[in-house]
């Protein structure tokens, strides 16, 4: 059966086939919903909560929530934007992010989502500033988990797309982070061509292909050319911070 459903996102009607998530349906309709842990081709994990929307007073993750006929979805509202901003800011506080010297700058989804949400300045709260050792053991790949946002995209890509299971979570709560299943990356069969190592898989500058940094000039990097949220048919604005 190929039933069609209709629902609204911020008042705009979306007509879509049944069985999609709200995020997929929104993507198909050209409506941007910001996200970090979701990536095309990977099973949704629903952990970063940047993609939250409001339905009937309930906050849900749009990357896992099925679209249903007749829903009224709130996406780009001041309330939701503020939640998203708080969530994004917390990621900066938990990691060690110095964008001007980071080679992911300009292609980093965390940075691009921040710009979309109008976050341009560090906030005044204390930063945890972790100082985790960099794993530079592999000839071609470097792992700098100081910038990891625990989106799990590398874990899922390695497991389901590469069939290698190279990464996993270690630690709990605030100490939870991504680690290599093995002593270090050099002692795994990680290859540059793995889906898990592709530049698009890690949304930040954590999994890095060595000796490629800064080859793309400022102005020609992924999000310099197409800032997040502006490639949609409907040019949404995340607004600037109040």
């Amino acid at each position: 059966m190929n039933a069609t459903i209709k629902f609204r996102i911020d008042g705009t009607q979306v007509v879509t086939k049944a069985g999609l998530t709200i995020m997929k349906a929104a993507d198909n309709a050209g409506i941007y919903i910001p996200r970090l842990c979701d990536e095309k081709g990977l099973e949704p994990q629903g952990s970063c909560r940047i993609c939250i929307v409001k339905i009937g007073g309930q906050i849900v993750a749009s990357c896992t929530q099925p679209a249903e006929d007749g829903l009224e979805v709130e996406n780009d509202t001041p309330e939701i934007r503020n939640y998203r901003r708080d969530l994004v800011k917390m990621l900066y506080h938990e990691g060690n992010h110095l964008c001007p010297i980071c080679e992911a700058s300009g292609r980093c989804e965390l940075q691009a989502v921040s710009y979309y949400l109008g976050i341009f300045q560090p906030t005044k709260y204390p930063y945890l500033q972790p100082d985790r050792p960099v794993d530079a053991s592999h000839r071609d790949i470097l792992l700098n988990t100081n910038r990891c946002i625990r989106c799990g995209r590398c874990i899922r890509a390695s497991k389901t797309l590469d069939g290698k299971n190279l990464f996993g979570y270690i630690g709990r709560g605030i100490h939870k982070q991504v680690g290599v299943n093995g002593e270090n990356l050099a002692n795994t069969d990680a290859k540059v061509g793995d889906a898990a190592m592709a530049l698009e898989t890690c949304p930040v500058g954590c999994i890095i292909q060595k000796r490629q940094g800064f080859f793309a000039p400022i102005g020609k990097r992924r999000f310099d050319l197409k800032p997040l949220g502006t490639n949609s048919v409907k040019q949404q604005k995340g607004g600037s911070e109040q």
Binding site: P100, P133, A136, K210, G213, F214
Partner: peptide, 10 residues
């Protein structure tokens, strides 16, 4: 311990 290609920027 920084990777060398970061140095000119850092």
């Amino acid at each position: 311990n920084r990777p060398y290609w970061e140095v000119p920027v850092i």
